[in-house]
Design a protein around this nucleic acid. Sequence first.
DNA 1: ACGCCTTTGAAGCGC
DNA 2: GCGCTTCAAAGGCGT
Length: 444
Amino acid sequence: PNPFATSPWCPPWVRYLQMKWPLLDVPAGATLKESRSPSPAHLVRSNKVPVVQHAHHMHPLTPLITYSNDHFSPGSPPGHLSPEIDPKTGIPRPPHPSELPPYYPLSPGAVGQIPHPLGWLVPQQGQPVYSIPPGGFRHPYPALAMNASMSSRFSPHMVPPPTHGLHPSGIPHPTIVSPIVKQEPTQPSVSPGGNTKSPVTVKKEEEKKPHIKKPLNAFMLYMKEMRAKVVAECTLKESAAINQILGRRWHSLSREEQAKYYELARKERQLHSQLYPTWSARDNYGKKKKRKREKLAQQQQQQSHDTDSEYPPAPFPLRGSLVPKSKKPCTQYLPAEKPCASPASSHGSMLDSPATPSAALASPAAPAATHSEQAQPLSLTTKPEARLSVHSATFLSGKASSSSSSSSLLSRPIPFTSVPSTALLSSPPSFATQPLSLVTKPAD
DNA sequence: ACGCCTTTGAAGCGC
DNA sequence: GCGCTTCAAAGGCGT
């Protein structure tokens, strides 16, 4: 334990970090040395990013946010991410507005409320929140992990050279995805005349704007953590199937466990809003499926010409299973989940149960969901032949239950698109492993 | 190369 | 405020 971390001079968040990772970053001697002559700024610097310095001991939140740093390269650490310490109080001093860098501008109020950009990136529990896949995770916010620390503490060869994905200010960030450099041959972004920009130029400049991704929500964070685990347990690699498993596991989590991710997501949004105060989800709205929407709009336009009275044109494409697609509906998508059952599932459930079922039952959010969801395939596949496997033969061998304990099934919202209507009428018994979904084209 | 699939949650949009 | 849509991640698959 670092004496300084327990001294009244130590800012609370430094104390907390010290408590969490006392051995990280600073050799024991250094810690003691600093503790004897507490130079807050120095200590802060040494604690600021303890985790990223040890490749074998990554920050528990490393996988928290996965904005790809393929599009990201380190630069100078943003000043506000390395708050100076008030020598009098030992408290990180929020940067003066005038000191705020032109990038990641923060509102002074918001800055004052946040003691440290990384302070919240601390798991509420004593253990790392996220598992670490074999290859390790990219740091969620390299802007923090690398800019603020590595660039100043790592040898240059460890820091990739600046490439793309830069914030307009020149500071890169994982949430920033360069809108592809494969654009047309370079052309001046500013018209020769000066300020006057043609609509085309404005449009192209807009296209060049870096793409700042949405912060991950609780479930996305959970997926990021658990995906590798599920993939390791299964032979599955298709994300759609993995996501179905994860979706059910998510519901099998206790309220407390979910709350952990909700809190992380909340903090993620908080940080995101600090980093990009002017960003709005609107910025990305309609970008991804632009092509699809454009295509649909064309179809609708064509349809309206052809048959005006038959169906009213939808303003947006219908979603998911509601969309009549050419693919085959109503078939279990996840035949391979059973083999994915955790070894810990002694009762034969297709999914992992909470560590302690009683604990889950004690939680008002999860109890009902815990068992019923494990046994209930919620989604329909559209490509049965491709998905069905040897396991599916067993899985689909027609053991559908007609138990009437439907209360638990209905205790939470179930996506309409995921559940066959009959599933709402007949739910499986607890611990049942039989699927309820309909199979219109059984496996041979 | 690009979109779909699949999940949940947050946020935008239109009414 | 409600209902719907989009986008976040992921990687195999289809076009």
